[in-house]
Design a protein around this nucleic acid. Structure first.
Lengths: 235, 235
DNA sequence: TAGAATATCTACTCATGAGTATGATCGAGG
DNA sequence: CCTCGATCATACTCATGAGTAGATATTCTA
């Protein structure tokens, strides 16, 4: 019922930032394979995994479905590849930061910034939303392991921060969940609201995480707070 | 390829906390309708919207598909009803808190606590994950409006908090996104990790939001921080 | 107790979409 | 310039799952 192939080749529909390496069939295998992944990621991002058919992806690449299958084994692997493309920068961030001579909070912030940018990237949605429900047990395990690695990495940095004093006392597990959750959620709204760049968003979030809601001087609250508001104590 | 239907009626699979009102056919229309919704929510929560067929839901209720259709118009409406069941407590929280004579931060915290509990509830997943991609334009608009209402409510409380001094200066929009995102994400991991009750989680999160990462006295950091860590400045 | 609702089931239709069998075609090396 | 393998398309198969048509059974009411 909906979009199915656009016969006239350059119909000017999707600007297609990368003009797709399918113009004549030279052997740039790897390039094409990556184009498939990226195109799939974009489609998943826009319409969701289950609402995207491999015909859709093929059409976006101006080829047919068997061609797509020539580059990936099946839809599930395709999602998995998108996931990998999404997490890799995050794992890289951990590696980059691992040996820096900085207090743990600074290292954590750096990781979180990269994390946020990754989530706002093309592959962010796939990474964040790759659910075990849609995957075979094997893939599910694999993905879960990678996610867990990241989670543990964050917790470790939090613990280190509590030790070196750069992070206040807190529950590492819950705090890690809160931080990662806030960042993961970017994938849900960034599509609609691109008023900031990924880097700006990541920076803004880190600022929020840093300070929390409480004003710097706790005294100030007591002075100015309870004066206004209509009455009626509910219930 | 994976799990599909359990033929033997009471195979003792899901304990079914509520023993389903289908025992003889008295007219408890509304009760049954709600049972359908709740059962659907549980199924969506466990296997995802797209991996749950109406046959599955019917089987869980020990009836057949047409019976389910007797109570809901279609799958989409079913998801929508689950969504409504999920958001309603949150909207109620805003109403409850609206006229309290408390600093805005306290009111915000109360809302966030209810929010967190709602997300960890049976309907949390449906509420959080009801995507416009899976819904008709009309429903999508409706859901988006409700989500926006909540978002705006949080932003307003943040702004009020900045005015009455109970909340430190920040960007209300980004802060609201961060808070809501962290809470929304609970729906993703609470299924697997139920080591805490929803109330405990909500409380823990609010604590994190309150203080942020920075230690209470900023001075302490400078003293203890930069002493340890192996070398190698990456890149 | 005879309809009239109300509630549920059996047995379909129909569209979609993943995945494939098989054959055409292109481009490069001999 | 001819063959062989790498690419790609046509034209399928097949399972699944949403939604429905048309009984049938049960309860309520007059």
């Amino acid at each position: 019922m909906n979009s199915r192939r656009a016969s006239p080749p350059p119909a000017g529909k999707s600007p297609a930032a990368s003009p797709s390496p399918w113009r004549g069939r030279r052997r740039d295998r790897e390039v094409k394979r990556e184009a498939v992944i990226r195109t799939a990621a974009r489609a998943f991002n826009r319409k969701g995994y289950h609402n995207t058919s491999l015909d859709d992806i093929a059409a976006a690449l101006e080829v047919t479905k068997p061609t797509v299958y020539y580059y990936v084994t099946n839809k599930e692997h395709l999602l998995f590849q998108c996931f990998l493309a999404g997490v890799e920068p995050i794992r890289a961030a951990f590696r980059e930061v691992r040996d820096l001579e900085l207090p743990a909070r600074a290292r954590l912030n750096a990781v979180l910034r990269h994390y946020g940018e990754a989530v706002a990237s093309e592959f962010g949605w796939c990474m964040v939303r790759a659910e075990d429900q849609d995957l075979s047990p094997a893939m599910s395990r694999h993905i879960k392991a990678l996610k867990s690695e990241i989670d543990q990495g964050i917790r470790r940095l939090i613990r280190e921060g509590m030790q070196d004093g750069s992070i206040g006392p807190c529950d590492p597990k819950m705090t890690a969940f809160a931080l990662a959750g806030a960042l993961n959620w970017i994938a849900h709204w960034y599509r609609e609201d691109q008023s900031l760049t990924p880097a700006e968003i990541a920076a803004a979030f880190v600022t929020v995480f840093e300070g929390g809601l409480r004003p710097r001087s706790a005294a100030e609250v007591a002075i100015r707070a309870p004066l206004r508001r209509r009455v009626r104590i509910t219930r």
